[in-house]
Design a protein around this nucleic acid. Structure first.
Lengths: 104, 104
DNA sequence: ACCATAGGCAACCAAAAGGTTGCCTGTCAA
DNA sequence: TTGACAGGCAACCTTTTGGTTGCCTATGGT
């Protein structure tokens, strides 16, 4: 799960995920067009991290490499991690509020 | 939102959040006990990032500094970002499956 | 057969992250 | 009032990260 969090920490990588969510199965070159501020190698590196985190699955076909979004890891973070915080949200908020009021 | 993602990218910081979720309003020294593998300064630095991301709110009271969890930013990520991926989950999964099958 | 296209590999570089040590300040309690 | 306790500041160091450039390989079209 650590790899997923780390992968999500970069805005460029999140942008890549968004691009794939918008249109799945894009090639490297196509993704490079969307992140025009980076060189191809830069994009490649980001994609490798995303792949290592399991967020993207790739398929080489002839001279093209297609990238597919895998939504499962994000889903797991939502379920296994974030939901714990949702659960305690109200309790934490009221504790926070109480602490801030006491500060006066 | 970028700060929140970056803050969540480190396992030590997530551990600090967990500690506060477990017991809210802990002092720096108490939190240091839970992350015994780090020095106090190390913990302080992590807490500063968490605070800058809005995930933790602090209150100095005499010679103690109390730390409170703020669940709102995590909630926002869940709602504004992750939910987009949940929405497209089935579609992305079937695209992925189709691509993998075609590979044979 | 050839050349343009799509991508990979490796070295390199600068900046940021993670962590430490040493010392200083403020606060409470005996 | 003096000492122990809680925390802050700043310098420093090492590793990781984000990015680049240069060159090499493989594939497909004409």
């Amino acid at each position: 799960m650590d790899l997923v969090f780390k992968a999500l920490a970069d805005a460029g990588r999140r942008q890549l995920l968004d691009a794939l969510r918008e249109r799945n199965g894009q090639t490297l070159s196509e993704l490079c067009d969307e992140l025009s501020e980076l060189t191809r190698q830069g994009v490649t590196k980001h994609l490798r991290l995303l792949e290592e985190a399991g967020l993207v699955v790739t398929m080489r076909r002839g001279r093209h490499k297609y990238h597919y979004l895998n939504p499962v890891p994000i889903n797991e973070i939502a379920e296994r991690w974030i939901s714990n915080y949702e659960k305690d949200k109200l309790r934490a908020l009221s504790a926070l509020k109480a602490a801030l009021e006491e500060e006066s």
